[in-house]
Simulated assay, not measured.
Amino acid sequence: MKLCVLMATYNDERYLKSALDSILNQTYTDFELLVVNDGSTDRTVDILQHCAARDARIRVVNCEANGGLARALNIGLAQTRAQFVARMDADDIALPQRLQRQMDYLQAHPEIDVLGTFSEDIDESGRRTGRIRRMPVGVRKNADLVWTNPVIHPTVVFRADKIKQLAGYDETLRRRQDYDLWFRVVASGMKIENLPEVLLLYRETAETFRKNSATAMWQQAKIGLRGCRKIGAGPVAYMGVVVPLITSLLPLSWRRVAKRVLSKVDPRGS
């Protein structure tokens, strides 16, 4: 089996089944869906057991205690021998052609190591908000545009052996583990690409904004500044790294407004 879809979940009972169904209903069907349950205390375990009983492609790994996203993803990486790993979050929805489009592209382009896609935001009820996240497409621009976080994490398919060479995700980071990983990918000479198609519905909730606290943004800024030095990025990258930190200092009600304004200059789109 060439493809493993890797999902980590922690207390995602509200959205989990929709996320699982969106993967199980893909037009590309030859995959294993490996779900790492990171110590959930809600109905997540019951939902996973029910779905796994109905579809043999689901394999569940249960962690006794919550250890964080990076640890859960590394556990999943260690469990799979697939050539490719597709990331998926437990609250998003993959559109039916997602895996087929990405697998076709990666097999036709062996020089690409990490492949993301565009996405469209949805709200807590699953309604599309109209915001399209357009990511930088050209591989040659990664060093300049990495401040945007060059791929949307739950859209990614990567070559498993390449990410394992980098020791996977940094488990000392509670958040922004993907941001750190992409800097290391670029610094190592690997290539990142994005398909200019919306292939994932990305869920944003009130909790999303609450998590983007000043503390979290300071952690992100530190990762970004360190990464910019590592890859020799230009001044625009440094500027972009500190913008989220500045906006995190605003009252919660103002952050949405600031996000809409900044989206006009952000290469990820509006």
Score class of each variant (00 low, 15 high):
I192N: 04
I132E: 01
E120W: 00
L225N: 07
R175F: 14
L69C: 10
A8C: 13
R268Y: 00
G232N: 03
S18L: 08
Y238E: 06
S40G: 10
N212M: 13
L250H: 00
V137N: 00
N212A: 14
T155L: 07
R43T: 12
L249S: 03
R255C: 05
D178P: 02
G126W: 02
V137M: 11
A160G: 08
A72V: 05
N74H: 11
G116V: 03
L245W: 07
R131D: 03
G168D: 07
D144S: 07
R59L: 02
Q79H: 14
Q83M: 10
I23C: 10
Y15T: 10
A167Q: 15
P251C: 00
R101S: 13
D92Q: 06
V36M: 04
G126M: 03
Q219G: 13
A86G: 08
M7T: 14
C63I: 10
Q100C: 04
G240V: 03
G168E: 13
D46V: 10
G39Y: 05
L77Y: 08
Y15G: 05
I112T: 11
N66D: 03
R229Y: 04
D113I: 06
D144L: 11
P96N: 08
T215I: 12
N142C: 12
R133K: 10
D12N: 14
R54M: 14
D123M: 06
L199D: 10
G224P: 06
L201S: 01
A52M: 08
Y15M: 09
A90W: 01
A82C: 15
R229T: 00
T80F: 07
V85N: 02
A86I: 01
P136R: 00
R131M: 11
